[in-house]
C-alpha cells in the first residue's frame, strides 16, 4: 500500500543563490496512514527545515527529490493549498499575530479550508460549541481564546494553543515540531491526550522531539534519526530509549 506521506531523496537549501546552504540532503521517509512516526536528531540537523519544506514556507528551495501526500506532489502547492489538503504544522516557535483574536483566526482558517475543499462554512454556534469542547479537553481558559493569537502567551500556552488549533481544524497529516518543549508535566499529559485522541486509521503523524518522555505518552510506530539532513537510522519505539541512554554519538557511531 502507498504510504500517506512519501518523501524520496529530498534535498533543500536556504539562503540566496550565491550563499545557498544545503540543509536537507537526500532525505527519504515514509509514513503510512494511521501511524505515528517520531523524528529525533541533534540540534541543527534539519528537523524544522523538513517541517517547513513540507508545509511550503518560502525561503527554502527544494533542490531535488519529491514529497507526496496521498500520491499528490505537495512541493508545488501553496502553503494554504497544502493546509486545505490536511497538512498541519504545530510550530516549534508559534508566531504572535497582534490584533487578531484566536477565535477569529481559527474560524477564518477553518472556513478558508472548507471553502478550498468545496464545503460549507461552519455556523457560528457550531464553531463556538466545538471551540468550547476542545478548550475544555485542553484545559484552556476561554478568556485566552479572545486574546490576540499568541500575544503575551507563555511558552507552554503557545504550545497548547497549537494543539487547540490542530483539534479544531482536524487535519489529515500532523507535524508536531517540539510541541513538548516548554510544557509543564501536567500540560504535557494534556497535550499528549489531545494528540492521541486524534490518532485515527486515516491520519498520519510526524512527531519531532528531543525527549523520550513525550513518546511515553504518544507511542510511535517508528522512530527515525535525522542527522546532517537525512534519515540515518530507523527503528522501533525502543530506539528512542536507546538514544536517551547512549546519546546520538553512541547510537550513530554504530550506524556509521
Amino acid at each position: 500500500m502507498r504510504p500517506m506521506l512519501k518523501i524520496t531523496d529530498l534535498s533543500a537549501a536556504v539562503g540566496e543563490d550565491s550563499e545557498a546552504k544545503t540543509i536537507l540532503n537526500g532525505l527519504s521517509l515514509d509514513v503510512p496512514a494511521g501511524e505515528v512516526h517520531a523524528i529525533m536528531g541533534p540540534n541543527g540537523a534539519g528537523k524544522s527545515t523538513l517541517s517547513y519544506v513540507l508545509t511550503g514556507r518560502s525561503g527554502y528551495e527544494v533542490t531535488g527529490g519529491s514529497a507526496t501526500l496521498n500520491g499528490e506532489n505537495v512541493l508545488d502547492m501553496d502553503p494554504e493549498t497544502r493546509a486545505a489538503k490536511g497538512m498541519f504544522l504545530s510550530f516549534q516557535y508559534p508566531v504572535e499575530i497582534p490584533g487578531v483574536p484566536v477565535m477569529t483566526f481559527v474560524r477564518t482558517a477553518m472556513n478558508a479550508q472548507r471553502k478550498a475543499r468545496g464545503e460549507d462554512e461552519i455556523s457560528a454556534p457550531d464553531f463556538i460549541k466545538k471551540s468550547r469542547d476542545v478548550a475544555k479537553t485542553l484545559n484552556l481558559d476561554a478568556e485566552m481564546l479572545k486574546r490576540p493569537v499568541n500575544v503575551g502567551f507563555s511558552g507552554g500556552e503557545k504550545k497548547r494553543l497549537e494543539i487547540y488549533q490542530m483539534m479544531m481544524l482536524e487535519p489529515k497529516f500532523l507535524i508536531l515540531d517540539e510541541t513538548d518543549s516548554g510544557l509543564d508535566i501536567d500540560a504535557l499529559k494534556t497535550v499528549a491526550d489531545g494528540v492521541n485522541a486524534m490518532r485515527d486509521p486515516s491520519r498520519g503523524m510526524l512527531v519531532i522531539t528531543h525527549y523520550q518522555r513525550l513518546l511515553d505518552y504518544i507511542k510511535p510506530d517508528k522512530v527515525h534519526v535525522l542527522a546532517k539532513g537525512r534519515i540515518i537510522k530507523t527503528g522501533e519505539a525502543d530506539l528512542a530509549l536507546r538514544l536517551e541512554k547512549e546519546g546520538y554519538d553512541g547510537v550513530l557511531g554504530e550506524a556509521a
Binding site: 511550503g56 518560502s58 502553503p79 494554504e80 477564518t108 481544524l169
Partner: peptide, 19 residues
C-alpha cells in the same frame, strides 16, 4: 509584512491575499 506571520496564517489555510 512579516514573513513569519504570513506563513503562519497560510499554513492554517488562509489564502495569501486574505492573510
Amino acid at each position: 509584512l512579516d514573513d513569519a506571520q504570513m506563513f503562519y496564517l497560510r499554513q492554517r489555510g488562509i489564502p495569501e491575499n486574505q492573510a
